[in-house]
Amino acid sequence: MTGKNIKVLIAKPGLDGHDRGAKVIARGLKEAGMEVVYTGLRQTPAQIVRAALQEDVDVIGLSILSGAHQELFPVIMDELEEAGLEDILVLAGGTIPDSDHQELKEIGIKEIFKPGTPIKEIVEFIEKELAE
């Protein structure tokens, strides 16, 4: 696996306090050679977008377990566009029901990874997307 020179922001939007999953992903992407910025719990959309802007990341991974993805994700996507960052690859993970996936993809979230997804699959997805 070669994630050389790929910079990723792992962000936890909203109010849930569970970041084991986010940390495992962050660690896994680091092991794959990526530079991973982790911003901690309870981030507002504004904080996430500002971090993505200043860090100039290639990928944003949003981790959410609170069920508020339909509230928060559209706000994040709008603010990214406003900041001129619509070309960042945005991925999501956590407890997001299958029935919501289509709607999230329509607002620009490229892929939604379910709990238990092997890190390798996520790494390969990122590399493939960025190579295009």
């Binding site: 994630g3 050389k4 962050a26 660690r27 992407l29 680091k30 092991e31 794959a32 050679g33 990526m34 530079e35 991973v36 910025v37 982790y38 911003t39 901690g40 507002t44 504004a46 904080q47 500002r50 971090a51 860090e55």
Partner: peptide, 22 residues
């Protein structure tokens, strides 16, 4: 630090900078 094995890095300093991050 960059990991010598993978070349990756975990950059976590922003976690404690919430007060100033926006």
């Amino acid at each position: 630090p960059t990991s010598e094995f993978s070349g990756g890095a975990l950059l976590g300093d922003r976690i404690r900078m919430d007060d100033i991050s926006t």
